[in-house]
Nucleic acid binder design. Structure first.
Lengths: 365, 365
DNA sequence: TCCCCGCGTGATACCGGTATCAGGTCGCGT
DNA sequence: ACGCGACCTGATACCGGTATCACGCGGGGA
């Protein structure tokens, strides 16, 4: 319990502890900071004084003096998304194990917020940070570049950034998408909706235009779309721009778009959803259309979760190694902070298709 | 673009900006810090120099000097839980609007982690923090008390702490639980399982023992159990200790317990789940038992989410005002930091029962 | 003409730690 | 008995900001 330090304003400082213990400031500092030598006797006195006063070191002052903060920053697009929540957990676990604190910032998918978040981390002098960036093109990476130029180690997670040659920890998005769409095709589907696409105001008519649009938006979008097209190409199924969703990525929008694809003369018999909210959006569309999954429409989605397994039917989903994604990113960052030379390489982790019951062959037309 | 500052080690400092602009350090500081007076001409020179060097103020140094950090801390039990993710978002939105940064820490339901998190925030000298604490009893609140005694404003969110008279922003847990259980009873159910209970190793045989156990664990647990008992009492339904789950709160454990309740001679016909993972656990148990919801077993759960609406059947759920919970907590905290006297009062927000299709009358036995 | 005042600016003492270094004490060898 | 070195300890200069205060300069009043 902190004693009355004669109306001292804030929390106790090292000088006050020193005074209380009757030793010099430096001795108290050595004891409490755990460096240099102090005789057992004085050490004991200092410790007792610190205990009595309820002393806690001021991390700000310490960082100022040493130049390191033992703190990592994390910038994610949406902490409310279970995917990022898992990644963050992986980061926190491994950084804590190495004695680092973690500051988490969420940008809610807004590039301006991302820039602001980057500045907060720079200003607070974190030792390095991990970012799932919405930036892609040359014009949008200035904030990350600025950090790198200051000598702050940065590693990318989930979303690579083409214009930057930083270490990135990602999954095999293209392969994962291809594998899922192939499973749909193998079941006999040929009209497959692609649900979370580029947020363009209207659908580009050509394959090339679509790909360009997707890649301009988010790295993962482009990759997943490529995987979808890969599978289509391999099976010689013609690409139909009407089967890909464009516009803002909201659950409501996904519902609208799937509803539209369901009303097409040659309607979809399967959907591939690139994110978890796209899955619920699609499911909602099926329900209101009075259609059942998988009888009428098969479905595969990204990001497995425990409710996907208890749905009726249990959903076939792509499981991302969220914890490892975070752990690996933290590990690479911590190594860089520790002095390792950044390699600027792409670390690709494998995802896994969890087959359940939401895919069956299409009904005869 | 930062110029070469002759092999300057770290990021540019205010002294370097001053030198570059050819003015005194104080003048540069006044310009960049936005205080005091500087003539338009010098101001221009300083700004240009800062721009050229890519100057950003060191928030650590600033905080040391001023004693305030313009930063809020948040400690939640599990950032991966959509409930807390929503609360955090509410906090971030309102604190950002008032010019504060937010540091989020997750304890993953571990009291030791909570203590560590508190220390991190104290050491980093946040201006105040919000905590959803796992502490309840007198013996566990020392870390929060310590912060309060240092003069750090603290407000509790979601989970009140009996032993502390701090401001707390919570929902009407007891009423919410009662309302849900009443709905079940109104549909004709009398054997109602209570799924996420106190984590005691074995079930206390008496009502009193159970309540004591629940209250010793988590404030919300006690409240929700009270609401359950309220509804039972009002309907003169005898309390059966076999119908409440005990043990660790994991989805697996919930599945086991519901399976057990389903195997009882006088089996349950309804379950009330106090958290979202308890819902999926219960659903899993129903599925493996070959039972359907709501035909065989009715269900109501806490924490609505978008997948609950697309389940088959759509689930009746209690919706908590997550964003407002966070916003209100941040507002109270910010006011306290701003100088308002803490009132130590309980701010109770209303939850809402969203009726869907998972409740129907029980089948005749 | 002199003085006083106000204004703009820079010098400097903080904040609370860390790290270097000087100086005092003691033991030991010769 | 003296010298030297090892060993502890405390004084002090940082880190990069903020805030106070002193000073130089110019203008206006007496």
């Amino acid at each position: 319990m902190p004693a009355d330090r004669g109306r001292a304003a804030g929390p106790p400082t090292i000088s006050e502890v020193a005074a209380e213990a009757g030793v010099g400031r430096a001795t108290a500092a050595r004891t409490l900071g755990g460096y240099g030598y102090v005789s057992p006797e004085l050490r004991e006195r200092v410790l007792a004084a610190a205990e009595k006063l309820g002393y806690r070191a001021n991390a700000l002052a310490r960082s100022m003096s040493t130049g390191v903060s033992h703190t990592l920053g994390v910038i994610v697009a949406d902490i409310g998304n279970p995917f990022f929540a898992g990644v963050v957990r992986g980061i926190c676990d491994t950084s804590r194990a190495r004695g680092f604190d973690t500051i988490v910032l969420s940008t809610y998918e807004d590039l301006d917020e991302e820039v602001a978040a980057t500045n907060v981390l720079i200003d607070k002098r974190v030792d390095g940070f991990i970012v799932a960036s919405a930036a892609i093109g040359k014009g949008e990476v200035a904030h990350i570049k600025a950090a790198v130029e200051r000598g702050i180690p940065v590693v990318l997670v989930d979303r690579a950034v083409a214009a930057l040659d930083l270490d990135a920890v990602v999954i095999d998005n293209r392969d994962a998408a291809r594998e899922a769409v192939e499973a749909l095709i193998a079941a006999g589907h040929r009209r497959i909706g692609f649900v979370w696409g580029p947020p363009a105001p209207e659908a580009p008519a050509t394959r090339r235009g679509l790909l360009a649009e997707a890649s301009r938006n988010l790295w993962t979008d482009g990759e997943r779309l490529r995987g979808y097209l890969d599978a289509l190409d391999d099976a010689r199924i013609p690409f139909d721009p009407e089967l890909v969703m464009v516009g803002p990525k909201t659950e409501e929008r996904a519902t609208e778009e799937v509803t539209r694809m369901l009303a097409l003369p040659d309607r979809i018999t399967a959907v591939f959803c690139t994110e978890t909210d796209a899955v619920t959006g699609a499911l909602r569309a099926l329900r209101t259309a009075g259609l059942a999954c998988p009888r009428d429409v098969a479905l595969i989605g990204f990001d497995d979760s425990s409710w996907a397994a208890v749905m009726e039917p249990p959903l076939t989903m792509i499981e991302q190694p969220v914890h490892e994604l975070g752990a690996k990113a933290a590990q690479v960052l911590l190594d860089t902070i520790g002095g390792a030379e950044p390699r600027g390489e792409m670390h690709t982790l494998r995802s896994r298709l969890i087959v359940r019951s939401s895919v069956t062959p299409p009904m005869a037309p």
